[in-house]
Write a protein that binds this DNA or RNA. Structure first.
Lengths: 111, 111
DNA sequence: GGAAGTACTGTCTTTTTTGTCAGTGCCCAC
DNA sequence: GTGGGCACTGACAAAAAAGACAGTACTTCC
């Protein structure tokens, strides 16, 4: 469990993975597609995901630099799980919207 | 995605959920079954999980107190996803063990 | 009466994670 | 030659999360 969290347990990692399921992207594209993330964090998370074998970094070695990231075969197994989690989260939000706190039985008293 | 993380995104929440898949437990049992967690954190996380509808708290209203926690029907949908993530993490650890850093193609250079 | 167990709460302090900001080296367009 | 874009790095500050530790209230056990 901790092992899994060490891989996707960053503020933006799941989002990055999610974005990349639509295909490879270069750094600046990713950055623009997730406006809330700062460049610093994006790059840090990308590096960690590459290190963990989830993403593949491809460097065209040109000037100016042109680097793309894509989900590795291994990473796609994680992406599937992340998608499920994401889907659960979406349902949860809908549930929250329709459930006022007072509706919910939060503690049950025996007897 | 953020929605899901706000529910299970605590250091011990996934572990708590995992422990509770084997059946209801009382606070002190949980505490003993996860020795690394402090009482403070256990209780905070339990409260948040109850607030999010994932767990049900049952208070026997006796003295001394006797409180049990169990996974709600709703929570079991999350537990399933967490189990999948946990399983992925386990495989990941095995992979890590057999993969020295030098084996891995971390960056691909286009021609 | 003193110790231990139950399920907590409150107030810090420490650790971890994020974010801010400046800077690098090179290019192209105006 | 000034401004902008590209993919980064490094030093630092702010914020969030986790942990330490004492305290509550009432019990049973010896």
């Amino acid at each position: 469990m901790d092992a899994a969290l060490s891989v996707i347990g960053g503020r933006w990692k799941a989002t990055i993975l999610w974005r990349l399921t639509e295909g490879p992207m270069r750094t600046s594209e990713l950055r623009r597609s997730i406006p809330q993330v700062t460049e610093r964090m994006l790059i840090r998370h990308l590096q960690e995901l590459v290190r963990d074998g989830v993403l593949i970094r491809t460097d065209a070695r040109t000037v100016p630099p042109h680097v793309t990231y894509e989900i590795s075969e291994y990473g796609s197994t994680l992406a599937a799980v992340v998608a499920a989690l994401c889907e659960w989260g979406r349902n949860h939000q809908r549930r929250q919207a329709g459930t006022s706190t007072s509706d919910v039985l939060q503690t049950r008293h025996e007897h």
